[in-house]
Design a protein around this nucleic acid. Sequence first.
DNA 1: TCTTTATTTCGCAAATTTACGAAATGTTTT
DNA 2: AAAACATTTCGTAAATTTGCGAAATAAAGA
Lengths: 105, 105
Amino acid sequence: MDKKTELISPDLKEMAQLAKALSHPVRLYIVMSLAHMNSCCYSGDLAEEIGVGRSTLSQHLKELKFAGLIQGEIEAPYIRYCLNRDNWQKARQLFNNLFAEKNNL
Amino acid sequence: MDKKTELISPDLKEMAQLAKALSHPVRLYIVMSLAHMNSCCYSGDLAEEIGVGRSTLSQHLKELKFAGLIQGEIEAPYIRYCLNRDNWQKARQLFNNLFAEKNNL
DNA sequence: TCTTTATTTCGCAAATTTACGAAATGTTTT
DNA sequence: AAAACATTTCGTAAATTTGCGAAATAAAGA
C-alpha cells in the first residue's frame, strides 16, 4: 500500500500496456486495418504487404496477441488473425475516457 | 516511394509516437491528471507525489513535451506544465478515428 | 512417408528505454 | 555576492525493444 499502488491504478497500467502495443507503426497499421476493414489477416501476407521479415511480423503479432488486441485461429495451413472485439471495446472505453472532455469548469 | 511510404502514413507514424508517449504508467498518469483535473503541475511536486526521482520525472516530462502533449511555461523558480490543448485535441481525433466503429457491413 | 508450406521460436546484435545520483543551469532570496 | 531552490542535463547501468536469418513446429498434399 505504498503511494504507487494508490496512484497508478490497474486500469492505468493496463492502458499503458495497450498504448505500448499500439506504439509501433507496424502494429498500429495491423490493428487499424483489422478495425477499419472489419477483416482478418494472415501473417505471411502481411509480412509481404508491409515489407518486413516474417519472423519480425510474427513478433509483432505476438505482442498484439499478448496485449489482447488480436487473436489467431488456426485455418490450416494458415493462422487467421482477427481483432479481439471484446478487448478492443475495452480499449476503446479506456482511451475514450482518457480523451473525454470533462473540462467544463 | 517504396511500399512502406505508402502503407505507413505520416498520421499513423505520428499516432505511434503519441502512443509511445502514453505507454508508460507515469506519463499516462501525468497526462490523465492534467486532462481530467484541467490543471497544471510542477515537476518537483509530481516527483514526490508519484515517488520517483526528480531527474526521472524530468525525463518523462521531456518526452511528453517532445510528443507535444504538454508544454511548460516558466513561473520562476518553478516551471508550470500544462496540457498542450491543440495537440491534445489532435491526439483525441487520431485515437477517436482508430476506435471509431465503422464496422457496419 | 516425404516434401512443401505457413508460422513460430531461437539466437543474436544494435538501438532504445528506464531509472538514478551527481553535476550543471538558472532564479530567487538573503 | 552567496546560499538556497527547482529543474535539467550528464553519465551510467540494467532492462527492453527491434529486426533478422536460421532452425524448429506443425499441418497439408503428393
